[in-house]
């Protein structure tokens, strides 16, 4: 092999390498980073969401029994890459699949049980009484007056099936003592009928939908928004994300 030849780097070379580095680095890295980090920019910086901001029907509230919760499947419109509605609107003349992409959520509805004694999260569960369903729902399932609507809204638990621990689907079971409870099958997180923490590793109660309204027709409508507890910012703020 030939001897190595190590020439001196002149000031011009140095500057030239610098300019090349800036141009190459700038063109290669900045657009690529923005391309990859688009979701972070859109969601965490601009505060957008992939889930459509419309009211979605859950179901008739009168169908929810007193003793145990009832699950409803709700479809939210989803705008994510090829599921984005805007694409279809931008190029309406191009024929292709017009399939709507949706995000389906399982929503647990139950009637609030009064909290007799406040527990302490991670230590002692709330002690609760019997769930209370508004009495007028026995007679009518629609055509509510504004007062009745408010009463229903105040006594409903609207819970996400995504476990607050690691997002597994939560189910309703009856335990050996004959008491019902929400159970997460992954790591055994348990919640009471109000969705509050009862046992196991979850750091909080089940996620509640925060935007909901009961309409005159006796049906519940919700938006895709949860009660995210502000913990230490960036450290313990948890969203149900994912679903």
């Amino acid at each position: 092999m030939a001897e190595l030849q190590k020439d001196r780097i002149t000031r011009g070379d140095f500057l030239g390498f610098g300019v090349m580095g800036v141009i190459m680095g700038g063109i290669i890295t900045v657009p690529a980073a923005a391309f990859l980090l688009e979701p972070i920019i859109k969601i965490d910086v601009l505060g957008q969401s992939n889930v459509g901001d419309d009211w979605q029907e859950v179901g008739p509230v009168a169908d929810v029994p007193v003793e145990e919760p009832e699950v409803f499947i709700v479809e939210f419109p989803l705008t994510q890459i090829y599921g984005d509605r805007e694409i279809q609107e931008l190029a309406p003349e191009v024929p292709r699949s017009q399939e709507d992409f949706t995000l389906t959520n399982a929503v647990w509805l139950s009637w609030k049980a009064p909290i007799l004694e406040e527990g302490r999260l991670g230590n002692q569960a709330n002690s609760i009484g019997e769930p209370e369903k508004p009495a007028f729902l026995e007679e009518k399932s629609e055509g509510f007056t504004p007062e009745e609507i408010r009463e229903v809204e105040e006594s409903l638990n609207i819970l996400s099936n995504s476990c607050a621990h690691l997002g597994c689907p939560v189910r309703w079971i009856t335990n050996v003592d004959g008491e019902g409870e929400f159970l997460c099958p992954c790591h055994g997180g348990i919640y009471d009928i109000n969705g509050d923490w009862y046992g196991g590793p979850p750091p909080r109660g089940m996620y509640r939908y925060t935007q909901f309204e009961v309409r005159e027709n006796g049906r519940l409508y919700i938006k895709h928004a949860y009660d995210v507890e502000e913990g230490i910012p960036g450290f313990s703020t948890q969203e149900p994300y994912v679903v």
């Binding site: 969601i43 969401s49 994510q80 890459i81 703020t237 994300y241 994912v242």
Partner: peptide, 16 residues
């Protein structure tokens, strides 16, 4: 949140 949104390609699981 950044890790999650990066992996999800959005704020919920979907096509992205």
């Amino acid at each position: 949140p950044y890790v999650t949104h990066f992996l999800l390609g959005g704020d919920v699981v979907g096509p992205a």
